[in-house]
């Protein structure tokens, strides 16, 4: 649904996006993470046929962004970083205008507008001018605008940044539901918990380049290593740590707990439990230590910074 290869954008010699390649199949969510100014918005603008790539190519829903710009824009729903509403209009008028631009019939656009307003809990504000909306309401209405023409692909820039937890939950639920219906999403966000919850794949972009991409597990494995397991026992471990050295390599230990990494928990954990039981150690819990996307993201950025600082590295 979203394909790109070598997508590059330069402004007066400055390379804002540098050879980005993407492939997001239908019904999947890609989260694009990165610091401010990394090139996320420029990438979205190229994928919306607003900016022409300097080199490389991209296709959205099968349409080339350069040769079929109108079809591309008809196939995508875009939530821009700034909601950009016409503040003197009322929501119904506003959505009616955009519905007409997308060539929806009067009946269809009215029905879809009302349905979406209801879905996002905005029905009570139908007669209010948009200038009177709160920031979160404006963002939700902008999301309604992006979904109005029922696009196959949604490019959402910080979809829940200004929302209260309940509204953010509504939006996340809607994304999951639409994903289930086969819609494809590209989210750019700084909310790593949200990205972890929603994304099938994650791309980290920095200085216009994708510096890491993959599923959360793949990224975690690559950047923070094997899953970390924590074992807690009744009483003292005493000399048990030494006895299990042939089964696992202990990374940290306390009087009644220890942590170790394993690439194959299914094989390692039963063997470890068997050995400890043999020594008469009572195991209370054995569980993986939660790894967050934040840990992974920070590690990715840290490694990229180190690479950038290395005198041997001539890539930047």
């Amino acid at each position: 649904m979203i394909e790109a290869d070598g997508l590059t954008k330069e402004f007066d010699g400055f390379r804002a996006v540098d050879s980005i390649s993407l492939n997001v199949p239908a019904g999947k969510v890609l989260a694009v993470l990165g610091p401010n100014g990394a090139g996320k918005t420029t990438t979205v603008r190229m994928l919306t046929s607003i900016l022409a790539p300097t080199s490389g190519w991209a296709r959205i829903a099968g349409y080339d962004v350069v040769t079929h710009p109108e079809q591309v824009r008809a196939s995508v729903g875009v939530l821009t970083e700034q909601h950009g509403l016409y503040e003197r209009m009322k929501s119904v008028e506003y959505l009616d205008f955009f519905g007409e631009v997308y060539h929806l019939s009067r009946q269809v656009r009215r029905k879809r507008a009302l349905d979406l307003m209801e879905r996002f809990g905005l029905t009570f504000a139908l007669k209010k001018r948009l200038g009177e909306y709160s920031k979160g309401m404006k963002q939700k209405l902008a999301l309604v605008r992006a979904m109005l023409h029922d696009p196959a692909v949604l490019l959402l820039d910080e979809p829940t940044s200004a929302m209260d937890p309940q509204s953010a939950r509504q939006v996340r639920d809607a994304i999951v539901e639409l994903e289930g219906e086969g819609r494809t999403f590209l989210l750019t966000t700084h909310n790593l918990t949200e990205a972890e919850q929603l994304a099938d794949t994650i791309a980290v972009i920095r200085h216009g380049r994708i510096i890491a991409h993959g599923t959360f597990d793949e990224l975690a494995q690559r950047f923070v290593g094997d899953p970390l397991m924590e074992l807690r026992v009744r009483g003292q471990l005493n000399g048990a740590t030494k006895e299990i050295a042939d089964v696992v390599r202990v990374e940290e230990t306390g009087s009644d707990w220890l942590r170790y990494r394993t690439s194959d928990p299914a094989a390692t954990n039963p063997a470890l439990l068997h050995k400890l039981t043999g020594f008469g150690v009572d195991v209370i819990t054995l569980s993986p230590v939660q790894r967050t996307l934040e840990d992974v993201y920070l590690q990715i950025v840290k490694e990229d910074e180190q690479q950038g600082a290395s005198p041997d590295d001539d890539s930047r």
Partner: peptide, 20 residues
């Protein structure tokens, strides 16, 4: 996510929205 490596081809889909 995988990296697309194929070259682009001009697309004309039969279900394309009509923007004559």
């Amino acid at each position: 996510m995988t990296t697309a490596a194929s070259s682009p081809t001009s697309v004309t889909r039969s279900d394309a929205p009509i923007y004559d």
